[in-house]
Design a protein around this nucleic acid. Structure first.
Lengths: 179, 179
DNA sequence: AACACATATATCAATTCAATATATATCGCT
DNA sequence: AGCGATATATATTGAATTGATATATGTGTT
């Protein structure tokens, strides 16, 4: 399920411009999948060539044409095929955790600062997801996905509060040993 | 904190070959950071050019020379600088969750199968991490990182068991409406 | 009037992955 | 003794993707 296929999937739900597809990534998928214009526009061009989607240009005064893409029968079949394939393992890249690996090279205040910022970020994510979950109109699937994110963020938060001492104490001991 | 910098960080702990650095990624970082040889070897070449690391080749009969890299004073300073920078937000790509977005296009057995496989994968991760955490020799920092992974995997597991009905029931309703 | 933000397209250098290639040693199995 | 799988060790390449940048204009805020 690469970005190309995911764009195709979004077009099974409604027709959209590249710009609107980007917004779906930001609004509905942001916590577990990201995509830039540099991936989306080439994906739409290629799928148009392949006959999976069709494009109708809508002239606009001043701005570039609005290109509205819609899925074709062939595209719909291609997406159904993609749904049969086994999803790859999640790929996570956490610079925060990578930096924690080197906590013994940092002064205690730096470690504490990093963890405090992390907690603040998690709180912001949780708050955003809670606001969305309160909206009555949210479909069940989106509710499921946001709830998933919420559960993960909450677990991270709880773990950090309870175990930050493991990295913070380690740093103190390393400093003491160096003196 | 790109792969290049992370390789440098690993070399603050001990000298190593590219192959051994890859193993550190697999053994200690696998749950939150990945790197392929296609990133590691060019990273080592470039840092050698930049004077951040030094390379001594050790001849071996038959095999290619073993190239043992060690960090220089300049490299150590560069890494300390990197530790001052703000870590980027985590980046997650979950094809599983992306597919769940389209649960109304899948038959219920397919959805259930995907969730069951996901649970099995989480169980495997949890088991692996528990085994490692039992080892007495594990340093505190590695313990902290593995515990973090454990907490997240466990939260995912709990959430999925309790909320899978949200996507599974949704699919049933969509099918019923279509009939 | 100035400035940020939203709409809408597109491209590009740099990063990174996943697969492949090349050699040999070693370990377990039959 | 032989076979295949796994481990050691290097390296490259096509393809995917990011993050930044460029181009225009409307709309809302201070």
């Amino acid at each position: 399920m690469d970005i190309r296929t995911l764009c195709l999937g979004i077009l099974t739900m409604r027709e959209a411009t590249g710009y609107e597809i980007k917004k779906v990534f930001e609004d509905d998928l942001s916590h577990f999948y990201e995509a830039s214009f540099g991936s989306i526009y080439p994906a739409l061009n290629r799928m148009t060539e392949d006959g999976w989607i069709a494009c109708k240009a809508e002239a606009q005064d001043g701005r570039p044409d609005k290109k509205i893409y819609s899925i074709t029968a062939a595209g719909r079949m291609a997406f159904m095929d993609a749904l049969e394939k086994k999803p790859r393992k999640d790929r996570l890249r956490s610079e925060f955790l990578a930096m924690m690996m080197f906590s013994d090279l940092m002064v205690p205040s730096r470690i504490a600062g990093l963890i405090d910022e992390r907690l603040a970020g998690l709180d912001a994510n949780l708050k955003e997801l809670d606001t969305c979950l309160d909206e009555a109109a949210t479909p069940n699937v989106v509710r499921f996905l946001r709830g998933f994110g919420r559960a993960v963020y909450q677990a991270e938060r709880d773990y950090l509060e309870e175990n930050r001492h493991l990295v913070e104490a380690q740093a103190l001991m390393a400093r003491a040993a160096a003196d």
